[in-house]
Design a protein around this nucleic acid. Sequence first.
DNA 1: AACACAGATGTTGTATACATATCTCCAAGA
DNA 2: TCTTGGAGATATGTATACAACATCTGTGTT
Lengths: 222, 222
Amino acid sequence: MSSPTQAQSVTDILRQRILVGDIAPGTHLYEIPLAQELQVSRTPIRAALNTLAKDGLLEYRPNRGYAVRHFVAKDLSDVYEVRAVLEALACRIVASKGLEPKAEAVLRGCLDSGDRILAKGRLDPADLTPYRQMNAEFHETILEAADNPWITEMVKRTYHIPFVSDRAILWEDFAIQQRTHDDHHRIFAALLNREAWRAESIMREHIYFAGQVFRNFFERMP
Amino acid sequence: MSSPTQAQSVTDILRQRILVGDIAPGTHLYEIPLAQELQVSRTPIRAALNTLAKDGLLEYRPNRGYAVRHFVAKDLSDVYEVRAVLEALACRIVASKGLEPKAEAVLRGCLDSGDRILAKGRLDPADLTPYRQMNAEFHETILEAADNPWITEMVKRTYHIPFVSDRAILWEDFAIQQRTHDDHHRIFAALLNREAWRAESIMREHIYFAGQVFRNFFERMP
DNA sequence: AACACAGATGTTGTATACATATCTCCAAGA
DNA sequence: TCTTGGAGATATGTATACAACATCTGTGTT
């Protein structure tokens, strides 16, 4: 078993399946079939379902069990709106108190990495994974630097929603990625210069816009 | 049994005890003694502990159980900072799209109620409960009006932290309450006039300041 | 034909026994 | 004296049996 407890393994497996779309929205999750399929008893299954419900991926009704939540376009913009103000808050805090040298170095690394990838002038599918990695590191470094566990925790919770993670990237439009990465440059500059309002504003728009892009994409889906 | 399931009853009981301070921070919660005391088996106890841990009231370590989280002054300001931007976001949204007549009526009622209580010129202990009720209704009405379940859910989650609920009020300094209630008037005016930035700014400061007040209070505690 | 109710069926909620991981403490060795 | 290893105790993790609740089905009544 990879995770310390089976309950956690089951949680990860089910979360993955739901996020990937392997289990369709609206599907009722029956405990006994899941237990048989995953070769565990109902106990860890129930713990996992409980966790996923609190993450917002499942809906729970007492005595009636759990069903996969149905997401619509509005959910996406709603969540991104929340993420936008939270990460913007983190930026304001970091800018106010200044960047630690260590965080500064990490952010510089992210900028360089993005610069190199985009220097090609086109979006190579092979670059998606490292770009995604870079993006996640950029955002998470700022969150950590804000040193407010509540912000971090709430933002991470939004990552559990389909299309909301900082690893969710639409690798299609070069112009958009270029602009997005330019945002990163400006956010970094603002943090370095301790321009709190500027860092806050850019980050808010940075994430809000991403939400709009995903909403558009989502609305054109099956 | 009042709640539909024992697990939920136990959750409510334990949450109350922790918030009231009946169970001291740092206390390790053993499943078997709790089960015996509450006259249930370990199963609903475990479900409750799981829930409270996800709410942030308990800390969980695999194979080592749950302990009541220890809150320090910084936690308070951190949480209030998050609550401030979230409720401010709700205000901005409501102001942008305008107040529904129903919500407008409720908010007017809150303002009247507060006016009447404060007209006495002093803080009567007997008025604390209705004032608290009024305050909760004011904030929750705005949250509902924003029609973004994610904001509501995350703000409600912060209420589970000691001293952070919209029902937590320091009923000591008349001048502070007067100013606070005046904030409510101005927030209402801004929502009515659809002044998004104004509603957002006042609400942000309104809650941020409350956080400072509680932090001061908290730091002078045993 | 429509409705109400009783029983059958299946799913979730709870209790409890067993498995496993962690902690305590003491003794043996360096 | 300090470290280390392991046996026993204790607490948590898991499996499973049973209880309670919800739903479905079929029958009888109006």
